[in-house]
Design a binder for these strands. Structure first.
Lengths: 221, 221
DNA sequence: GCTAGTTTTAAACAAACGTTTAATTTCGAG
DNA sequence: CTCGAAATTAAACGTTTGTTTAAAACTAGC
């Protein structure tokens, strides 16, 4: 048996458990048992648990980021500039499905965990390795939304990231609720169908609206 | 020394560390050391670590939820019905600051962690104890957005929750970036100022926009 | 001021964790 | 076939984890 098999078996098992439970909540013994490999194989091939976490994330990032980069350079003017940009994120994401049916969902769940958990150092990792793509994202959105300052755009990009990442991290639970309440068999495509108008509306939101703190102070309890 | 002191010392230390690092990443020894109480005190007063987690969350929920309930019944028609509703969430949140300066931020960070981490069982906990408030939230938004189906509204509410929760969970990191990039001293009020127009725009987003999967399939790689 | 109940304490518990070791097996190059 | 690097394995490593124990300290009620 080649080591390649062992590596991918570990990565496949790890990404599933990481996405389901989180990094800290998943032990190397859980992973190696599911992958049917020896416990020591993780440290042999990936150095440490942190190395494995980053390898899991990087396997998807290395696929997704170049495609995103491409898509951003030729955004489809679907309905509006913003909508076209948002679709530039979604099309390559769904494209990951050609490797594995649930790859798009797994990737987003991992992204969510990686951004929130301290352990993954994902933010640092991404900005270091894919800083140019991040810069291009900001640039394209600034083009599409000329009325917004860089600072407002910064926050809105993170609001959008948060929506996506949160809903995907907890998609299994949400799917159950949607099934119980609406009899809806929710999948990733439905989710993207729902989130696109929301994000497009959010980016185009009227900045004049604001919640100053004055009213809160007036309560003066 | 009364046991009340010990309890609150534990809760105060726990909420800070939980919000900062997450539940799994914080050990009882970290907490009791910061609180300057004996290790066994946690299990004595809260039964288990899970009991402590829920106690930490419930301390804020018990304060916030009734106020939210009140605010939802008399929403201020600020600029639009949706804006008024969103402010109904924010005013009681900022109001928590009267107990402790960073209580609003801590609460939101804990909420974010609780919703994502498996360990907290927060979703179950909230729907069980504050199910009526949840129902009222859905009801009020349905009133304010008569054009939206219950199902679309369900997803948008979770998109909004995700934005808030994600940005607050990682607010410390985002604050640093904003400081470095724009020289901005970001605080919770600025964040609410930024997120309100985004969410208002999101809820009012045009549902006709959608990302059907067809284009993705056509890529056929 | 003694007693009963509550709270605090130091110490130890077993279990689970990531990691390392050293011996063994695998396998392609010479 | 042989040799040596690469990979796999079982076992143990030392920590850290949440939890429990049993004794000590405290605090009210009579």
């Amino acid at each position: 048996m080649a080591s390649h098999d062992t590596c991918t078996r570990i990565l496949d098992a790890a990404e599933r458990l990481f996405a389901e439970r989180g990094f800290s909540e998943t032990s190397l013994r859980d992973i190696t048992q599911l992958a049917e490999v020896n416990l020591a194989a993780v440290n042999y091939h990936f150095g440490s648990k942190l190395g494995l976490i980053q390898a899991v994330l990087d396997r998807y990032l290395a696929l997704y980021m170049p495609e995103l980069d491409q898509a951003l350079q030729h955004p489809s003017e679907h309905k509006s500039p913003v909508t076209g940009l948002l679709r530039a994120f979604m099309v390559p994401l769904l494209g990951l499905g050609r490797f594995k049916a649930d790859a798009p969902m797994l990737f987003m769940q991992l992204l969510g965990r990686g951004y929130i958990d301290r352990q993954g150092h994902l933010r640092t990792f991404i900005t270091q390795r894919y800083g140019d793509v991040i810069a291009q994202i900001q640039h394209r959105f600034a083009q599409a939304l000329p009325g917004l300052s860089e600072e407002v755009l910064f926050w809105r990009l993170h609001f959008a990231l948060g929506s996506s990442v949160f809903v995907m991290s907890s998609f299994d639970a949400l799917r159950e609720i949607a099934q119980a309440d609406f009899g809806q068999q929710a999948d990733l495509e439905l989710l993207l169908d729902r989130i696109l108008p929301f994000l497009a509306g959010g980016f185009s939101g009227d900045y004049a609206l604001s919640c100053t703190a004055t009213d809160c102070d007036e309560r003066s309890l």
